[in-house]
Design a protein around this nucleic acid. Sequence first.
DNA 1: TTTATTGACCATCTTTGACTATTATAGCGC
DNA 2: GCGCTATAATAGTCAAAGATGGTCAATAAA
Lengths: 156, 156
Amino acid sequence: MAQLSDAIERFIKDLMSEETHIELRRNELAQHFGCAPSQINYVLATRFSVDHGYLIESRRGGGGYVRIVRMRARQEGNLLDMLIKRVGNSIDEDTANAITQHLLDCELVTPNEARLLRAATGRNALALPVSGKDVLRAAVFKNMLIQVFKNAEGGV
Amino acid sequence: MAQLSDAIERFIKDLMSEETHIELRRNELAQHFGCAPSQINYVLATRFSVDHGYLIESRRGGGGYVRIVRMRARQEGNLLDMLIKRVGNSIDEDTANAITQHLLDCELVTPNEARLLRAATGRNALALPVSGKDVLRAAVFKNMLIQVFKNAEGGV
DNA sequence: TTTATTGACCATCTTTGACTATTATAGCGC
DNA sequence: GCGCTATAATAGTCAAAGATGGTCAATAAA
């Protein structure tokens, strides 16, 4: 049931558990998992995006590599500002979920709180014409983020 | 003679007798019972709804699944039923806040979680024509309540 | 009438492959 | 050795195919 993408994600996260960054060969990794090299890109794009708190750097050609960097946890006040900007006036569900996952990974929210964030911004909650959903999600999400960080700074 | 639906219901409940949640493949199960896959959805919708104390999560695509989660103890489950009914299809902000306060008083949510509930259902979050706000708030709030009552061990 | 069943069509997530882009290195002529 | 080019060694992109599950309305059964 654990499919390829999940296995590759796990593998990478295990490698990174003690490191702030790792370097790997895309083709080697693909061979290790017996899959197409572009599969690696898919995993990086869907599970190691900036919104997830990672940076990808790479280089082609001989001696090429893919480097995965865990972004340094910023000052929390700053993080809120950045997240609010990132959310902007409109945000899709995947991006919102990525941010929520990132907050969970950083232990800035509890698993229960993460569930609430997802519940309030998921497609089921927002029963609206598609065009309006992202805008509404942004508004709801921002309000929740502010509360998350208000708490972190000890307010009420 | 017991209906197909009843047989599927029993099958699932047997699987869950020892577990707080199970995961299954919709198509596999349908094949096992020799029925249309959508039959499974029918059974889930009519016998494993929130009213029945269950929660369904699923994922499409390769490695997809349907997860059935049993919600918390009956007493609290009843409270959820009542709350869901109370919320209905439309709820104003004051009423939603009163419910949140009640959950907080009962210690069914933490202060942080209460803040998230308010943040997601407050008038700031729901930037819509007044007529639609209450309806949307009901949808969002219900999704969040369900998460609050979800069995803590019930998966992601 | 109400409940159950099915099937056609839709939405989402994953995997692959063909084609493209970039970089290093080996050979070559000078 | 120097500069140029061809080739090999990487990685990236994107669209198509594959693998699931969801929805809804028509039909059948109770």
